[in-house]
Amino acid sequence: MSSKFFIDNDDAVLRDAGLRVTKQRLAIMRVLFEAEDHPDAEQVLARARERDASVSQATTYRTLAVLAEKGVLQTHTFDGGMTRFEVSNRPHHDHLIDMDTGDVMEFVSDEIERLQRKIAAEHGYEIVAHRLELYCRKAG
């Protein structure tokens, strides 16, 4: 599953999050919404600097923190590693994490979703939200 996600108006997202619209923040937004992986803050910074060399570390970290606080971004700390980011308003998916490389792959399984609902129902619950992270190594 590709994590590439486009938004119609970067400016509105920044304003709604209470951030000033600057060319540096717009570069950060494009990196986040075009990411096909789950970049950490330093990766976001490096990619944003490829678009605009004036992007600072402070602006990157502040923008990431505010966007995560406002729910625009989801944060993941896979197996206690660095915090990684992905946009929030994407279709539900789960994660497969390669323990050797740190690569994060997204997947969707209707079978897993059905089983989770069944298990919750058997215990008298309805799932409101969940995250599934599978930590793996290549077989063989």
Rank of each mutant, 00 (worst) to 15 (best):
N89M: 09
G102M: 03
Y135M: 02
R62D: 14
P91Q: 05
A65P: 10
K138H: 04
V128I: 06
G80F: 07
R114V: 03
Y135W: 01
V44R: 15
L67V: 12
K4P: 00
G71P: 03
V72S: 06
E126K: 10
A35P: 01
H123W: 11
V44L: 05
L32K: 00
V13P: 09
P91G: 03
D103W: 04
A120Y: 08
M105I: 01
I97N: 06
E36F: 04
Q43P: 02
D79N: 12
D100C: 01
R84C: 02
R20M: 08
I112W: 15
V44W: 15
R84T: 03
T63N: 08
K70L: 06
V87H: 09
R49N: 08
R90Q: 08
V72M: 05
I97Q: 07
A68D: 07
V21S: 09
L19N: 14
L73R: 09
H38R: 12
K118C: 07
R114A: 10
F33I: 00
T83V: 08
I112Y: 15
V31G: 01
G124P: 10
A68K: 13
S3W: 04
F5D: 03
S56T: 12
K70Q: 14
H93I: 00
E69L: 07
L132T: 06
D10I: 08
M99P: 01
P91S: 01
A48T: 02
K23G: 05
D98W: 02
L26V: 07
A41C: 12
V31W: 01
Q43V: 04
M82H: 11
F33P: 01
L115D: 11
N9A: 10
L45H: 15
K4T: 00
F107S: 02
G102R: 07
E113S: 08
R20P: 06
H38E: 06
G81P: 04
D40K: 00
F6P: 00
A48E: 04
F85C: 00
A41F: 12
E69Y: 08
E126G: 07
E111M: 02
